[in-house]
Amino acid sequence: MIYIGVTGWGDHDLYPAGMASRDKLKEYAAHFPTVEVDASFYAVQPARNVEKWVKDTPAGFRFVVKAYQGMTGHQRGEIPFSSKEEMFQAFKQSLIPFVDSGKLAMVLFQFPPWFDCRKEHVAYLRYCREKMENYPIALEFRNQSWFSAGFREQTLRFMEVEGWIHSICDEPQAGEGSIPVVLQATHKEKTLVRMHGRNTAAWMKPNGKNWREVRYLYKYSQEELEEWKARIQQLQQESKDIFVLFNNNSGGDAAGNAKDLIQLLNIKYEGLAARQLDLF
């Protein structure tokens, strides 16, 4: 199956005017069958939050949960846990409602641009795999060294052997801190595709306080989505389920592009939530 959605559910042009934030996931689930949970990156989520998200979505809905920033080296300042062991354990505990409901698609480990291909970083990936036990985990790099000519095949083989789901990226090609599109599944059950846009000018240039707001400012053209239609169909030959998440939402384009791709692929999702507007 092809699951198409966006990253987060709070800031998209999907909702009736005045809709409370607490009700937005219910409405979001009337449009898409999957979402990326970004809140889990900034803090390990309390059970009450996850239980509400699970309750607010239909049975067939799937969550891609972003790994906590302390687990991927993004943390600035002290980590609010006494040890890495405690940190990983707390994060896994937060996943229990997702798992019990059957709604956990995967946990996404996205590593920062400085996380390059070297021995100690490979060792840390093995550590993460061990600590995450049997949870489905996806791996996304932001340093192109992993897919350089000398390491590409070794990287893909490592991911396959260690049981990592490949997070394939469409993103600006802006030097060392970006990766190319590598169309190869490493997991027979699942593959993740994340659409970051192609705003090359803003990708690696923090030239202002609004840099992070414009980094994902991009709208995919029909031609670019047609290209990805063919790529997704190719990946279907290698992996049972394909998850496609649009992250190009600085200008509010993610939801629209996601719907465009659903239409291009002629997908008719069944079992979505009832739209709130349909209730009146």
Rank of each mutant, 00 (worst) to 15 (best):
residue 49 N to E: 09
residue 76 R to F: 03
residue 77 G to V: 10
residue 77 G to E: 09
residue 70 G to Q: 05
residue 51 E to F: 01
residue 49 N to F: 04
residue 74 H to A: 00
residue 65 V to G: 08
residue 59 A to D: 15
residue 67 A to F: 10
residue 52 K to H: 13
residue 49 N to R: 01
residue 78 E to F: 11
residue 60 G to M: 09
residue 60 G to I: 03
residue 71 M to R: 03
residue 51 E to S: 11
residue 57 T to L: 03
residue 67 A to P: 11
residue 61 F to V: 07
residue 49 N to L: 10
residue 59 A to V: 15
residue 71 M to D: 05
residue 69 Q to P: 08
residue 61 F to Q: 07
residue 67 A to I: 12
residue 62 R to W: 09
residue 76 R to H: 12
residue 76 R to L: 11
residue 65 V to F: 10
residue 49 N to V: 12
residue 49 N to G: 09
residue 70 G to N: 00
residue 60 G to Q: 11
residue 69 Q to L: 11
residue 68 Y to Q: 05
residue 58 P to N: 08
residue 73 G to F: 03
residue 63 F to V: 09
residue 54 V to Y: 06
residue 79 I to K: 12
residue 62 R to P: 06
residue 72 T to F: 01
residue 73 G to S: 14
residue 53 W to E: 13
residue 54 V to A: 06
residue 60 G to A: 01
residue 79 I to E: 15
residue 62 R to E: 07
residue 70 G to D: 13
residue 64 V to S: 10
residue 71 M to K: 08
residue 52 K to L: 07
residue 63 F to T: 02
residue 62 R to V: 02
residue 55 K to W: 15
residue 61 F to C: 01
residue 54 V to P: 00
residue 78 E to H: 07
residue 75 Q to S: 14
residue 69 Q to D: 15
residue 60 G to P: 12
residue 64 V to C: 15
residue 78 E to T: 08
residue 79 I to A: 03
residue 56 D to T: 02
residue 71 M to A: 14
residue 58 P to A: 08
residue 65 V to N: 02
residue 49 N to D: 09
residue 58 P to M: 09
residue 50 V to I: 04
residue 57 T to A: 12
residue 58 P to W: 02
residue 74 H to T: 02
residue 66 K to T: 00
residue 57 T to M: 03
residue 50 V to A: 05
residue 54 V to I: 03
residue 55 K to L: 07
residue 52 K to A: 15
residue 65 V to Q: 04
residue 79 I to F: 06
residue 50 V to K: 05
residue 53 W to Q: 07
residue 69 Q to N: 15
residue 59 A to I: 01
residue 62 R to F: 12
residue 63 F to K: 00
residue 72 T to E: 05
residue 68 Y to F: 15
residue 65 V to S: 09
residue 49 N to Q: 07
residue 65 V to W: 01
residue 57 T to G: 04
residue 53 W to Y: 13
residue 66 K to C: 01
residue 74 H to Q: 13
residue 73 G to W: 03
residue 50 V to F: 12
residue 74 H to F: 07
residue 60 G to K: 04
residue 52 K to F: 07
residue 53 W to P: 01
residue 58 P to D: 13
residue 56 D to I: 07
residue 79 I to N: 11
residue 78 E to W: 03
residue 63 F to N: 07
residue 79 I to S: 12
residue 59 A to K: 13
residue 57 T to E: 06
residue 72 T to Q: 15
residue 57 T to C: 04
residue 65 V to Y: 06
residue 54 V to G: 00
residue 59 A to H: 11
residue 68 Y to I: 03
residue 57 T to Q: 02
residue 51 E to H: 02
residue 55 K to R: 14
